[in-house]
Design a protein around this nucleic acid. Structure first.
Lengths: 344, 344
DNA sequence: GGCCACAGGTATATCGTTTAACCTGGCGTC
DNA sequence: GACGCCAGGTTAAACGATATACCTGTGGCC
């Protein structure tokens, strides 16, 4: 069994043509007659030949791979499958085209992330990268621009920036619906527990909530800035409930926090949704697992991943039409919300 | 701004040496005087030069990347961050050595997985792969062997096989402790809800449970085969609780199922842990989020990922000592277990 | 002093593709 | 009948590193 990997030369020999001819048929360039194309193709499949990624990358300066670096500790990462869903979406677009996804997970150390991008760029391992979690004062766009790497952002850039980005249409609709839902159920004291303030969506969503409440002459009863951890959510919940003018409903920035908050409330003897309504964000499977099931704002994370991948692929001239449907965020009403309790 | 990427030639020119010399210093081969080494190094850093991954891969037939293919639907993937933790562990070992992780997520279609491995191998994109979820009748070892790809399995191979594998020491200790815990609390009717039967650990764990119970002259009151889905867990729980000789405790094959089962029980008006004790497996952050918090068998998934990476790196002669500490599984007692209810 | 060994390099082939530049035979056109 | 042109190839030069083979000047040793 000749275990040596076949090369284009072997294929050319078997087909009785030059290596250039083989290259042309597999890349669909130049003009090759149907007859020889056929010969080449059968020779290739007979030898189970596939172009070496390294050689192609070297010669054509295209790696057919895209990169992603996730900045998060293992703990947070596994508590919130946000990334996982995005990755699924990305992969579903890359796979059919034979593109690979090079993933780097870096901890919270500030320099690690930049180093990861640099390495990806310097070693020329990827043709582009997808950025997640748009941050305020984000330096990554600038960095990648100087590194000469294609990038696409999932989310809204923190300021007007030429970096391509993808986001759901009707971005605020889900959150608005959530607020309406609460107000319609008689809630007047609604709290908002956000994620870290350096995230763009943190501010954006807070504004949407304020806006939506303002339409009813209301304002958030409390506005707490938290991290994405369970401990943070528990702490926030405890503080909210300790207030003698405690909220009757609380919106959390993601599902993990919402679930943690809900549990914290129940642990403190506060019934959900009887005494407190809770709404999450993202609609992770987690929300359906728990009791009571979580009312949440569904976000099409898989769709966002796909969209990002397509934008990137389009900028690499790999596909023409980058568009893909990203379902707008929508409210999913389950069990964790209900009518506001009677006046305390 | 000359945006062209610097090459080894530029560095050599700047340092006033031959390209071969540069190559030698960056690879630490041959003999180079400290003085020229210094010159080369400063030249390299002045130009921000890093060897092109493609060129290195082509010339030395080493890609400095390892691959992983996860076979799971996006839904399951995000419900159970199992993979994510393994990946974190793997990455933490790869990163420092400049290795990349090429990730492929394939759906449940049977051929997709094999195709992904083949592509990885044929295109020579990786130096090795890590396999997860050891299956009974697993054909991947054979496949990778014929493809000539290094592999390491996280888990126990289904039969004696030369493929290297990593697993925690004292593999059964956690589950045994779980059973002891239940028995000590007076439980006599203990059910086991497993994952799909094609997984090696499914059978293994069931045997461990049976064994541990047998030591007390007991046997599982019920043994249900489920998938890893929430729906499956809910269904299993409903069936268990419908039995008039219902179990007083149930062990689930993973935390997601356990949480879903726990919720299902509560929804049916069954108190946890008052009337039913529930134990999960893996100790995902999820278990701490919910109320009551989940008693579970902790598995050092990050450690397993690290171990797998190190074994692979060692077989690539990248490191000498593959060993890494994988914490043995241990029981984490939280709130979802308690004394068996009084004789019904 | 002559010879060898060795440290410290240099020159060059090579990895497997792509691609620009070049050939060639046959056909349509004037 | 000469010419040009084009389909359908071929040749050979890159791409950016690594590694083998080969130099050269010292110093040690007898």
């Amino acid at each position: 069994m000749p275990s040596r990997k076949p090369t284009i030369t072997d294929v050319a020999a078997l087909a009785g043509v030059s290596v250039a001819a083989v290259s042309k048929v597999v890349n669909g360039k130049g003009s090759i007659s149907a007859a020889t194309r056929e010969r080449v193709l059968t020779a290739a499949s007979k030898l189970r030949w596939t172009p070496s990624a390294a050689a192609v990358a070297l010669r054509s300066a295209k790696t057919r791979a895209i990169g992603m670096v996730a900045k998060r500790s293992p703990d947070l990462l596994s508590a919130d499958p946000h990334f996982t869903l995005l990755i699924s979406g990305i992969e579903s677009e890359l796979s059919p085209l034979g593109y690979g996804l090079l993933l780097h997970i870096v901890g919270e150390e500030p320099s690690a992330e930049e180093a990861a991008y640099r390495r990806l760029a310097d070693e020329r391992r990827v043709d582009g990268v997808v950025l997640t979690e748009s941050r305020i004062g984000d330096t990554r766009f600038e960095l990648l621009r100087t590194l000469g790497v294609n990038a696409v952002l999932i989310g809204t850039p923190w300021r007007d920036d030429p970096v391509p980005s993808v986001q759901a249409t009707g971005l605020d609709s889900g959150l608005r619906a959530a607020v309406e839902h609460l107000v319609a159920h008689g809630h007047r004291r609604v709290a908002y527990v956000s994620g870290p303030e350096d995230r763009v969506h943190t501010l954006y969503r807070r504004r949407v909530v304020e806006d939506a409440l303002a339409a009813h002459d209301l304002a958030p009863s409390h506005s707490i800035v938290s991290d994405f951890t369970a401990a943070g959510a528990v702490d926030a919940t405890a503080r909210l409930l300790a207030d003698r003018r405690r909220p009757t409903a609380v919106l959390f920035a993601n599902d993990s926090m919402a679930v943690a908050g809900m549990s914290a409330a129940r642990r403190l003897g506060v019934d959900v949704p009887g005494e407190l309504s809770v709404i999450g964000h993202d609609d992770l499977p987690l929300g359906e697992l728990v009791y009571p099931q979580l009312t949440t704002v569904r976000q099409d994370l898989v769709g966002l991943g796909r969209a990002a991948a397509r934008v990137l692929l389009a900028s690499l001239d790999e596909i023409e039409d980058a568009s893909v449907e990203v379902r707008p965020p929508e409210l999913v009403v389950r069990e964790s919300t209900g009518p506001a309790p009677d006046r305390t």
